[in-house]
Design a protein around this nucleic acid. Structure first.
Length: 463
RNA sequence: GUCCCCAUCGUCUAGAGGCCUAGGACACCUCCCUUUCACGGAGGCGACCGGGGUUCGAAUCCCCGUGGGGACGCCA
């Protein structure tokens, strides 16, 4: 049987890191088994779903390169089908109408909580042999409830958590269609997973409690029950739960912050899943290795430091032309035109090893394309009265120098030797004059890239 | 409150009863490299939540506790 997995986000916000990992694992599972990966938008909450959110999710998926084989399907476009099945269930008695009002239900819930019970529907409208139902109130649009079995156990072997069993006595008759006739989440999921032939449902473990209800409905419909894999959640850097209010950011924010999708993907893959001691691998390798057996059942804390490490790795590996395109964009956003200076690829080649993010890289090379502001502390420390004459003499020498790294280095070295100094004594002031601060790659290489004219121009401003 | 789930270095994790003196990675510390900062290299610090079982032997299996999380919607 062909493996078919799906990612089924609800379009009520952007694609965040937890959703991205769920998508990644579902995608990888399908790829691994040469199956199909389906994207389904669960937009039945009309009040909260927005087209912008749909687009944001698609953008996130595309940025990560998680391509789907079918879809995106939109549940709102499948209304007729859901309603058809609800009618069938109503007809065969596996579902029934319930006329309880929201107010009534709220009161019931509260009373149960007060009494220390698990809040649940008490079945007052549930038809039963020999039971007399209340008389139908006027003006109430009934909801449709699923007639959940009252006894027995629902169990399944979760592919990450193992055997899970829940007693039917814990479950109540959930609403599958609202008063206005629109179906609800738990029902749509069941119909779709069934009709779309999903073989493995891989989703967040906040759905564990929905699973027994879904299995019961699947059984009532005579459907095949898929396998389930419930992924534990991702906590924020601070160990706290991620939420809209706290820490959850769009995956696109990582793009904006200068992370490469390869790095984010690799990081996410290792968050909750492992393949021995392997840390760095590409998606092709990941899809080959991926399995559900090596997923940790416990929650994982996000660690930006480790993401940074991976990102710096991928920056070092990246194709220079691609990096160059990206950095051009980032700099131009800051009003810097890379046309105003040395070849960008050469500059990046010199700088890529020192950056955790593309933004750091962009910021680090700014001074090649615009006159730097000299850091006061660095100037005070290195541009001392005793070395300035040496700097001036060197400037004159550099004016007539052949502009290669070797000859520049030679001039610096001569100054060092002739004056009985240590190398940094000469290199540091040069660095401050040319870059504006006390850290840069080899100063001879920097000067070479900067170009003779620009380098001399910057030096001249100090005399 | 009720039900469900989880528990190895600060963090991500390896670990399927002897291979564990608990391994790797990030971070941190030291040293080396060095033209500053990085990169890179070599070391170091650092963990099986507690208590009971089972077993010749437990990080691994079982039970109880403790701690954390999730779910209990006409949200998904």
């Amino acid at each position: 049987m062909t493996v078919r997995t799906r990612f089924a986000p609800s379009p009520t916000g952007f694609l965040h890191i937890g959703g991205a990992r769920t998508a990644l694992f579902s995608w990888a599972y399908a790829r691994k088994h040469r199956g199909e990966f389906i994207l389904r938008i669960e937009d039945t909450d009309v009040a909260r779903s927005t087209p912008e959110a749909v687009q944001a999710i698609l953008d996130g998926m595309n940025w990560l390169g998680l391509s789907w084989d079918e879809g995106p399907f939109y549940q709102m476009q499948r209304m007729d089908r859901y309603k058809e099945i609800i009618q069938k269930m109503l007809a065969d008695g596996s579902a029934y109408l319930c006329y309880s009002t929201k107010e009534e239900l709220d009161a019931l819930r509260e009373a149960q909580m007060q009494a220390g019970d698990k809040p649940r529907y008490d079945g007052r409208w549930r038809p039963e042999e020999g039971k007399k139902l209340p008389s139908i109130p006027a003006g109430v649009q009934p909801v449709v409830r699923f007639k959940n079995p009252k006894t027995g156990l629902v169990e399944w072997v979760d592919m990450v958590k193992g055997h899970i069993a829940i007693s039917n006595e814990e479950l109540d008759d959930l609403i599958i269609a609202r008063g206005d006739g629109t179906p609800t989440y738990n029902f749509c999921v069941v119909v779709d997973d069934w009709e779309m032939g999903i073989t493995q449902v891989i989703r967040g473990d906040d759905h564990v409690n929905n699973t027994p209800r879904q299995i019961n409905m699947l059984k009532a419909l005579g459907a095949t029950i898929p396998q389930y894999a419930h992924l534990s959640m991702i906590l924020g850097d601070d160990g706290q739960k991620l939420s809209k209010r706290h820490g959850a950011v769009s995956v696109m924010q990582y793009d904006e912050d200068g992370y490469l999708p390869e790095a984010v993907l690799n990081y996410l893959a290792r968050l909750g899943w492992s393949h021995g001691d392997d840390e760095i691998f590409n998606m092709e390798q990941f899809c080959e290795w991926f399995d559900l057996d090596h997923i940790t059942p416990s929650a994982a804390q996000f660690n930006t430091e480790k993401l940074n490490w991976l990102n710096s790795h991928y920056i070092k590996q990246a194709d220079l032309a691609n990096l160059s395109k990206d950095i051009t964009k980032r700099l131009s956003l800051k009003g810097i035109d890379v046309g105003n200076g040395p070849n960008l690829e050469s500059v990046i080649a010199l700088y890529r090893e020192r950056s955790n993010t593309l933004n750091e890289l962009a910021a680090g090379i700014e001074y090649f394309y615009k006159t730097p502001v000299t850091d006061a502390v660095a100037a005070e420390k290195h541009l001392t009265a005793d070395v300035m004459p040496l700097m001036k003499a060197m400037m004159l020498q550099l004016q007539s120098a052949e502009w290669t790294v070797e000859s520049i280095h030679h001039i610096i070295e001569q100054t060092v030797v002739n004056n009985g100094l240590k190398f940094p004594k000469v290199a540091m002031p040069l660095r401050v004059m040319l870059t504006g601060n006390a850290q840069s790659p080899s100063i001879d290489a920097v000067m070479h890239l900067l170009g003779q004219q620009e380098a001399l121009k910057r030096m001249a401003t100090f005399f």
